[in-house]
């Protein structure tokens, strides 16, 4: 444990550079920018009748897609994918390989760094994005300005507005209702997503270390983002499918969305416990493959010797 924490601390210090800090800010800012754009620039066709709950569902799904999905993927790609390749490229690998279980601790330490980096950026981004898209506050503020109602009256009005058709008007679009519920759900999803994708990328980056980044991006695009949304059995084998199921379990969707057949294809009807166990199993398998790979394979090449 001491050795793993030593690698973690060392690697955290190494990534605290202006360049890496910039990317952390970019990843954290990504969901905020998307929420701001949605709040200010989405316009429905004139006369369209959309309930506020529908809008909230749309905002929640969009936030899930940009934060626990894209942000965590980016974080994992930046830190976990090149974990082994970077050590091999700069020939620092051997110094760790000649330590007792040095490679074991290197992998686990770097994995922890990737999780912390991706999860922290995503959590900050999600918190700020939810604040931006917090419809309750926007409605309350608007109502207070109009008629200064009592607290009870405000609750009643907010509740009514959630269920009543929302006709688009000019100005800011109300975003997420039940923001605290969404925030808690997103925090949980971000943590699970960071753990899962970091494990996936560190495995791919170790097994295919010569083309680590290219392969991880290709896998993400082809499997997680394409097959993961493909309405067939194949999507059940993706991290995306499990996270999405948790999203629909942990957040409230509009009645219209619930009644549509979309959920049948893109989410599982198994329990939350099953989804979490599935993700934990994936993480364990990915890390096990990575650790076995660094123990079994030879990473010293002829170019590192004088032959």
């Amino acid at each position: 444990m001491n050795s793993m924490l030593a690698v973690f601390r060392f690697e955290m210090n190494r990534i605290l550079t202006p360049g890496r800090a910039f990317w952390w800010v970019v990843v954290a800012a990504f969901p905020v920018v998307i929420m701001l754009l949605m709040t200010n620039y989405i316009q429905f066709p004139p006369g369209a009748r959309v309930t506020q709950q529908n809008i909230s569902t749309m905002f929640t799904i969009a936030l899930y897609f940009v934060a626990p999905t894209i942000s965590c993927m980016l974080g994992g790609l930046l830190i976990a994918a090149p974990a082994v390749a970077s050590e091999l490229e700069q020939h620092s690998w051997v110094y760790l390989a000649v330590r007792p279980n040095g490679l074991f601790y290197l992998i686990l330490g770097k994995y922890l760094v990737a999780v912390v980096w991706a999860a922290s950026a995503t959590l900050v981004g999600v918190t700020a994005a939810v604040a931006v898209a917090d419809a309750e506050n926007q409605i309350a503020a608007a109502t207070a300005m109009e008629e200064q109602p009592s607290v009870a009256a405000h609750e009643q009005q907010s509740s009514r507005q959630r269920d009543q058709p929302y006709t688009n008007a000019t100005g800011t679009l109300p975003g997420i209702v039940r923001s605290s519920e969404v925030l808690v759900a997103m925090a949980g999803l971000a943590t699970l997503s960071a753990c899962s994708y970091s494990a996936l990328y560190i495995m791919l980056g170790t097994v295919f270390h010569r083309r680590a980044m290219v392969l991880c991006v290709a896998y993400t695009a082809g499997v997680e983002l394409f097959l993961g949304f493909f309405p067939a059995v194949i999507n059940r084998f993706t991290i995306q499918y499990r996270l999405r199921t948790l999203l629909f379990d942990w957040t409230t969707q509009s009645e219209q969305f619930r009644q549509s057949r979309v959920l049948e294809f893109v989410a599982s009807d198994e329990s939350v416990f099953a989804q979490i166990m599935w993700l934990i199993s994936c993480i364990a398998v990915f890390l096990a493959i990575t650790l076995v790979s660094v123990q079994v394979r030879e990473f010293t090449s002829a170019s590192e010797t004088d032959v």
Binding site: A6, V7, F10, R14, H91, Y95, R99, Y105
Partner: peptide, 24 residues
């Protein structure tokens, strides 16, 4: 080893400390 492979941004003291910590 014959090649360098040292981390550019790290201090020599931090690096040797890490490698010692890997010995427990």
């Amino acid at each position: 080893p014959g090649y360098e492979g040292l981390y550019a941004t790290t201090t020599g003291l931090d690096w040797v400390t890490l490698l010692l910590q890997l010995h427990g």
